[in-house]
Design a protein around this nucleic acid. Structure first.
Lengths: 203, 203
DNA sequence: TTACGAATTAACCAAATGGTTAAACCAATT
DNA sequence: AATTGGTTTAACCATTTGGTTAATTCGTAA
């Protein structure tokens, strides 16, 4: 059985992830997590001292992926800035389609008043922005990319990718979509955003 | 005193708004709201039967403004689609700058598993999307606007405006910003987004 | 086999929370 | 002055929640 091959700690983490992602920190119930993991509630405190510490563990694991690791992509010499940003959009949307809960989980946590201090543990400080900036400057000097504000542009691209996942329940109502419609909409969103990027960045 | 001129109901609503917006439904405490309003906790249940009903009232008031009322703007005959979208960005960002908590409040509520049923009460069903679509089609027929997907474009523009407010705590860390820096960044974001819109939509 | 430490459980606890109730207050009406 | 009806309060209640504890099980090394 695949269930038995999981250690107790892994079972707890899996159950906690599911619960915290769905209900948030305040909404999550320790008993609920224990039930989902098929163990006694006391075990949660045995492996992780408190609800806070368990949550911290999950958040640390998940937040790593809110901003993807694009350092290597940005450093490549054989692609233009435009191509890099197109690649970024495709990779990011595909990733978020697989883990659609991460954006909301991260955004809720960093905005929540009850869970201060988590922001400091964000692992993407100065990773993404700087590599994008350098990559842009190189192309700009050669005049192969239009003059824009790279920081504003980066925020815009991320916003265009992430927002549909944050506003998904709203979009489903506004555009009268089922789950399958949303997925196909996100699929066709990739070439659409690539088009926008190319139009904005072409000199 | 301005405090005494407020009726008890107004005091409750003001305190509830502040608390719910900051802590969300599950995080908010009735006792906290009562203290903030300077009244007895039983009064909350006297004026609004339950926590759910009080929250519903606040959410209804706030969610109206998540998607701004742009119907009239979109129906104007003397502006092009490009100009309308530029005007939209300027108005929306200015609005969100004044009420920067609304996006997160709405997004958290519609995504929360504990507060189902509130989405149905969203007042913007088919208001925004349809008026934008019609406005685009008119210009498209005259060839004065590029061929894009108007729905995807609308989601993109909203995402570019809203995302900075949702990710504000993260952006402040990533770009090492203070509150004042964030504000000036949002100010300079308006012409930047207008530039993007013009580049995307110019045929 | 025994001993020992880690893993696991059932029962329990104190605090917090949303909600209720009965009594008191207060202004207007009779 | 007495009555009435809405408003306000203090005290109370049942339930839930995160967390603890003491006892038990289990694997393993001596």
């Amino acid at each position: 059985m695949s269930e038995q091959e999981q250690s107790t700690e892994e079972k707890i983490l899996a159950a906690a992830e599911e619960t915290f992602v769905k209900d948030g920190f305040e909404g999550a119930r320790m008993q609920n997590i224990a039930n989902k993991a098929g163990i006694n509630k006391a075990m949660l405190h045995y492996y992780f001292r408190s609800k806070e510490m368990l949550f911290e563990k999950i958040f640390e694991m998940k937040s790593k992926f809110f901003f993807p690791a694009v350092k290597d992509m940005m450093k490549r010499e054989d692609t233009t800035f435009i191509e890099k940003m197109e690649e970024f959009v495709e990779g990011y949307i595909n990733f978020l389609t697989r883990y659609p809960f991460i954006p909301f989980f991260v955004v809720r946590t960093v905005n929540s008043s009850g869970t201060q201090g988590f922001i400091e543990k964000l692992p993407f400080k100065a990773q993404l922005a700087e590599s994008v900036f350098i990559s842009y400057q190189k192309d700009r000097e050669q005049g192969v990319v239009a003059e824009i504000d790279p920081n504003q542009f980066l925020i815009s691209v991320i916003g265009m990718c992430v927002f549909p996942f944050l506003g998904k329940p709203i979009l489903k109502v506004v555009f009268e979509m089922e789950e399958s419609n949303f997925e196909s909409m996100m699929r066709s969103r990739i070439p659409e955003l690539k088009l926008y990027i190319r139009k904005i960045l072409t000199p």
